[in-house]
Design a protein around this nucleic acid. Structure first.
Lengths: 197, 197, 197, 197
DNA sequence: AATGAATGAGTATTCATTCAT
DNA sequence: CATGAATGAATACTCATTCAT
């Protein structure tokens, strides 16, 4: 689904609408990065996006919807990376960790801000489904590598990995050596869990 | 130095005043638990505390200060438990994990809400000092048990533990077996890290 | 550069917006006249202007800005009269005094109220520049009529004139014969000052 | 002759009460000088005076009364100086001007602040009577020196003098040579007025 | 569709004043 | 009498949202 196609697949008006939509979502992302969540309001988003507040409300029913859309956009990006992993076993695990780290550090402030937003209020079923899929893919890759383990153990490993990557994104851990650190944490946990009754 | 009364405008001398102060902080806690952060505003806090808005501002210079006060109250409780640990080695580690879990599940929604608040805006130096002390005590106990390790490895272990306890508090992991799960994660990571070059 | 719209948050482009802006400033003027400075608050201004409080803040960043805007409007009116004086010598002096009195008595309560406001807090550089210009024009006319005199003597004469006109505006002196009284005070002072060593 | 105790709710019989009263009034004066009118509120006055807010209200029915009391205190001081003038003719005029200037520059910020306060809201009949007496004494001294003149001319001279002294107090005119400047303004006006039909 | 003027409920905060202790 | 805790009406200002043009 690359946008490099020379021929527009949508009518001009549709394409314009899509661009406006994207501009609004990206404006929200930029404000979140540069000024933080407190500063995020619809008037500012519209201004930053270069559209009027009226236009903004033509595309999004309310402020919440913009955030949901942004979260979806970010998750979609991560999901695309995870889905694209072709490797197996250990290599797959490394690829997954690398993708997570790459994604986290692509726009670290944005990732950190969205973390908070996600936890603050329940997102719609759609966003939840994407979170679910990320977890499922991650668990699947781990299961493939570590064999039959309880769901909760796989989930624990995923949570450990995500927690460390997030912490590093917020500057609590050095990025240097992060992939090794994360894979060490995940692997040592899963190995130990496999040995337990 | 009444540690439960942070940043007070007036240092309350009478018993009634101290009670009022505590009532305000507790009201904030209850609203956070029951209605979430968005619903937290000074008028509601005052109403819930059974005092007038003027009284609230007699003791707290602004809304922020109430939250800082609440965070301090909660941290003080956890710190007291951690400081009280007399055991050594493995027993100390277990005691620490047990204290963290006990604290997290005493008022799980409150703990989760405060997590978000803490990350949203920088707390004063005082609150930061308490966070520092918690981290130091935790690291110290781990160092005692696992011998000489890089600071970052100890910190990683602390982050793993905290992350899992938080996740469980939010319902992502079962409370059942949580202590074992956390100690397994921490110990397996630190053992593995100790073996690394 | 619409000089009647100072410090606007949004530069209003539509006619409706310009009218709204003017209505807000005029509402402030009316309240000042009828109820005094104590009664001047943003909610009342908005109500009197027939707009919502939100609209008021769309055009003025704060209450202060409305007052600055009003002061500017009034000064602009006086300045226009002073700048328009074509006469020379004695006639110019009389024209200046007449203009000041006309302006003071056009809306005497407003003039008196603004006097107080101006002294209460420092206005922005722009308003100060207008005050400066008024003083400069006045001094210039006096210098033209009375020849080389020390700046402080010219300023003293200006202050005498302004003080008497203000006092009359507040009812302390009769309007009847005011122009003669003021010119007598100014001329006798400057003649006497010219004779001093 | 309870002239030092303005509008007291109770007639203070004890010296302590009188001192408390004076402390409150002086506290108001200091705040006015150091922080300006905006910062003047009853709680601050009480704190600065070293008494509780309850005590303040034991002596003054409301905030206004404190200001009236302060204005009276200041006027009383000036009146005492004016009443004490024993000289006649020119010497008396100079003494009056000197007294006014001395009073204005004793606490210039306070004098300026009170000027504004006085004009902002009508003081009680008592304070008005004192203003009247000051004007009467001043006019009397002028009449004595300049012979029979219309009341309005005498009043004009008084207003000129007061205006210049106030302006100097606010830094608009140099204090250096102020007495001469004021007497020149007054004398030249009255001489000229005496010559008019 | 796009614009941007207008809305108004909501929020933090102040301060003169009262009253129980 | 003195204290200071408590009150609550009032005030400045914000921001998500609507709607006439």
């Amino acid at each position: 689904m690359t946008s490099a196609l020379p021929t527009p697949r949508k009518t001009p008006t549709q394409r314009r609408a899509i661009e406006t939509c994207a501009a609004i979502v990206e404006a929200a992302a930029r404000i979140l990065e540069e000024q933080g969540r407190e500063a995020l309001n619809t008037n500012r988003i519209a201004e930053r996006a270069g559209v009027s507040i009226g236009t903004l409300y033509q595309y999004f029913p309310d402020k919440h919807a913009i955030l949901v859309s942004l979260i979806r956009r970010e998750r979609e990006a991560l999901l695309a990376e995870l889905r694209a992993i072709q490797a197996h076993g250990e290599a797959a695990l490394q690829a997954m960790i690398a993708a997570s780290i790459r994604h986290q550090f692509a726009r670290p402030k944005l990732a950190a801000a969205l973390e908070l937003v996600e936890r603050s209020f329940p997102l719609g079923p759609e966003a939840a489904a994407m979170a679910e899929e990320i977890a499922t893919i991650s668990s699947g890759l781990l299961a493939q590598r570590f064999g039959a383990l309880a769901q909760d153990d796989l989930l624990t490993a995923v949570l450990i990995g995500r927690g460390l990557v997030n912490a590093a994104g917020e500057g609590l851990l050095p990025r240097q050596g992060l992939a090794e650190r994360v894979s060490l944490a995940i692997e040592s946990y899963l190995c130990a869990a496999a040995r337990q009754p």
